[in-house]
Simulated scan of single mutants.
Amino acid sequence: MSPILIAEQVLNGLQSGVMLFLMAAGLTLIFGVMGLINLAHGSLYMVGAFAAAALAGATGSFLLALLGALVAAALAGALVEIVVIRRLYSTDHLDQVLATFALILIFSEGTRWLFGSFPLYLDIPAALSGPVTLPGGIQYPLYRLTLIGAGLAVALGLWLLIERTRLGIQIRAGENDREMIAALGVDISRLYTVVFALGAALAGMAGALVGAIQSVQVGMGEPVLILAFVVIVIGGIGSIKGAFVGALLVGLTDTLGGIFLPELFKLVTDPATATSWGSSLASMAIYILMSLVLIWRPTGLFGARA
């Protein structure tokens, strides 16, 4: 296995990880501040992807499509929070799970009614198409490299928002004692709507960016949602830093496991069956990683200890 191939797969893992972070960051914000289990978060990822594909087809501009995806997902998130989620804060988690699962069905059928059952395709912008030569002679797609940079920039911006702004102070305070900040005059309903819309916008952005390298179709958000839950369990529920580290670990484990494990099995077993055994284990690698982290630290890598 050549060093260039390994480097390319590491970059693929980073790209997958930073896109997972955009999903997981919104999910952990919503759960950390609101205590809400939102199974419909993957549907907001799908909303962003479909909005971007539709706007790109209508305007021919990828930038306008990306901005439209952010706005569409944020508005959808705010509407869902005001109409449905606001009634679930005082209920137990089972009610939240059932209600947000119903939202998945509503979003899926609504999207199918608007766009049909066939997948849409979002073209990579011409300025970002083609490969770029990296040090060591590595040829890597410029668009995927841009995704890594965009994800890291959003991670930095989100950290600055949480740590350096008044809204961030309110979000962190709401995470610890929502009754107290309400007593101090903070409009808790408005704060919840803003947090939910922010989480939805991050998911929509991820959907729009990934939509250019895979087909945009109904139900595309659910597999990503499962990985996002794995990320926040590994990183620690409510921790943005944990979501970032967990996303990178999951992205690299998933990508590199699919390459190295089949090769490893070829050394210890029959080459005819090594690929199937290695591929099966690779598909379980992130869940094995999650189990090991929870055995070592049940609250996740950066979760607060009881």
Score class of each variant (00 low, 15 high):
A49F: 03
Q96D: 13
L39C: 10
Y143E: 14
R144L: 09
L75Q: 05
L67Q: 09
V84F: 15
L103V: 00
L122W: 03
Q96G: 05
H41R: 11
L114H: 10
F50K: 08
V83D: 07
L20H: 00
A51L: 15
H41M: 07
D92K: 02
S108V: 00
A53C: 11
T111R: 06
I138G: 01
F101G: 02
D123Y: 01
L75E: 09
A56S: 15
S117G: 15
L105P: 03
F21K: 03
A25T: 01
G35S: 04
F115L: 08
F118M: 02
L75R: 06
L98G: 01
A69T: 12
L98A: 09
F107C: 06
M19C: 10
H41V: 07
S117V: 12
S117Q: 06
S129M: 05
N12A: 14
L27S: 10
G110E: 14
L39I: 09
L36C: 08
M34D: 01
Q15C: 11
N12H: 10
Y89P: 02
P131E: 05
Q15R: 10
F107S: 01
A58M: 14
G77K: 02
A73S: 13
V47E: 00
L55T: 14
S90Q: 13
R87S: 10
L14A: 11
G32L: 03
L44W: 07
L20E: 02
A24R: 01
S43A: 15
A56D: 15
G116Y: 14
L11M: 08
L120D: 13
I124A: 00
G110Q: 12
Q9K: 07
F118H: 12
A53F: 09
L98I: 15
S90C: 00
L55R: 12
F118P: 03
Q139F: 13
S61C: 12
I104R: 10
S90F: 04
Q139M: 12
L88M: 13
A127D: 10
G26C: 07
L147S: 01
A53P: 05
E81I: 00
T91K: 09
A53E: 13
L63A: 15
G48H: 04
D123M: 02
A25M: 02
A7D: 04
L20C: 10
V18G: 04
F50W: 11
L134I: 04
G42N: 09
T100L: 10
N38Y: 10
R86H: 07
G42C: 13
S16H: 07
G17T: 07
E8D: 08
R112T: 06
G35F: 08
A102R: 12
A69D: 02
R87H: 15
T59I: 12
A102W: 11
G42S: 11
V80L: 15
L36I: 14
L70Y: 01
L11V: 04
